[in-house]
Structures are given as C-alpha cells and as structure tokens.
C-alpha cells in the first residue's frame, strides 16, 4: 500500500506576526512543517513500520524553501519526496487543484494531511483534494485502522467522538492528538540527504479568493494587577468578576 502525505511549510507557531508593505513579513521567521501535517507524516511512517504501508511519499507545494519541510519528513522516515513549485500566495482552491494533480500521478492508496494549517487556518485543502479526486474523506482523526480495503478512523467531532469507515483509496486528515511526531535522528537526517526528491511544475490554477486587507488585532491593554495577600487579591478579583464582568454564579 502506498501512502502519500501532503505537507505545508508554515511559520513556527512561536513566530510573532508583523505586516510590512501590505504583506505578512517573513524575514527572520523560522519555518516548520505545519504541526498538523507533521502528525500525518508520523502516522504514515507508523503505518509502514506496522507493515500496513510499503512506501511513504511526501508532497509539498510551495517555493524552494519548502524543500526543508520535505527533507524533515524524509529524515523522520518517509521514503521520497515531491515538490510542486507554486506561489505560496495561492488560495485553497488553487493549492488543492495543484496537489490533486500531483497525487493523481502517484495514484496512492491513502492520502494523509493535517486537517488544518497553522497559518491560514482554513481547513479546506484536504476536503477539496478528496472532491477533485472523487475520494471519500475522514477529517480530524485521532486513530486509524486499515483492513480489508477499508479505513476506519476515530475523529474529534464537535461534542463527541465519531467513528467513520470508508473504502480506500481515501483522504484522511489528522488532528494533532493522533500521535507524537518523532524527532529525526542523526542517522535519519544523513539518510534523508540521499533520498530522492522530484521537483515538478504546478498545473495551471487561478486563485478564487482575494485578500483585500491585512491587519493586526488591536493590542489588548493590561489592566489591574494585584500583588498582595491571597485573601485580599481573591476578594478584589471576586468583586471585579461580579461587578464589572457581571458573571452569573451557579449555586
């Protein structure tokens, strides 16, 4: 069984966001694999270690910089990579079209991806890829079992846990609580340098959504700060909650 994992390169989640010339400034920002995609990479590697998958291919669309994200996934244990050169400003539609075309050429049995990217927060691309490829999709998974040509997954649904079964091939997208991604070992990092990565051009796809304005949220101001005996502080905090916030107390 061939597994293909889509990864997006994103800003480190510790990055401070600034806007320069109407764009999000990327100077000096540390780039990482989107944490949700990193979990998908780990999930794919674990399927190979269990003997369920025979090959794990990593796919990224982006600039040359995204090669680092692919190399990291290869160092974790993926077998080979594909980088599709695409403008990082492409919207969800354009990215899905480009990724789906590359996936189709690989014809995998299972497509894994993070359910959301930590940068745009859109949660659209895996679902769109599934639609383009005419495949079923299970979202926000926290576990997977593969047997008899079917994938059965637990998902973190709103207000509960849902177990869903689909026929393979399928697109499955991960929640961060699925697993704990490994750190690449020194040996893995060395091996990754020799693993093949193909670079291909993106198919034509125009973005549909236009960003018309970027801004930073109004900085929240610090208010009252009390450094006093706990009973004094607790009484004042209680008063503030009741009189300013007007909380309701459940008796």
């Amino acid at each position: 069984m061939k597994v293909l994992v889509c990864v997006k390169q994103t800003f480190d989640t510790e990055a401070k966001i600034e806007i320069k010339d109407g764009k999000i400034a990327d100077a000096g920002i540390n780039l990482i694999i989107n944490p949700y995609d990193e979990v998908a990479v780990e999930g794919g590697i674990q399927l190979k270690e269990k003997g369920v998958a025979t090959e794990v291919v990593v796919l990224a669309a982006g600039s040359d910089k995204a090669m680092d994200a692919i190399r990291t996934a290869l160092a974790m244990g993926a077998d080979r990579g594909i980088l599709v050169k695409q403008d990082t400003a492409a919207d969800e539609f354009a990215r899905a079209v480009v990724l789906a075309a590359a996936i189709k050429a690989e014809n995998p049995d299972l497509v894994l991806a993070g359910h959301v990217a930590a940068d745009d927060g859109s949660s659209q691309v895996p679902t769109r890829i599934a639609e383009i490829l005419g495949l079923p999709h299970i979202n926000v998974i926290t576990s997977i079992e593969i047997a008899g040509g079917k994938a059965t997954c637990s998902s973190e649904a709103d207000g509960g846990t849902q177990v869903t079964e689909v026929s393979m091939p399928a697109v499955i997208s991960s929640q961060v609580s699925w697993n704990e991604p490994r750190y690449p070992s020194m040996k893995g990092i060395m091996q990754a340098k020799k693993k093949p990565v193909a670079t291909v051009d993106a198919v034509a796809a125009d973005s549909k959504v236009k960003i018309v304005d970027l801004s930073l949220p109004a900085a929240k101001q610090a208010g009252i700060k009390i450094d006093d005996d706990p009973d004094v502080a607790a009484a004042k905090l209680s008063e503030w909650m009741l009189n300013t916030v007007k909380v309701e107390i459940k008796k």
Partner: peptide, 11 residues
C-alpha cells in the same frame, strides 16, 4: 489567520 495573530479580509 495565524490563530488570531493577524486578521485578513477576503473577497
């Protein structure tokens, strides 16, 4: 976007 670190208006 960026989990609330910035805001984008999209058309």
């Amino acid at each position: 976007i960026y989990a609330g670190k910035a805001l984008a208006k999209v058309e």
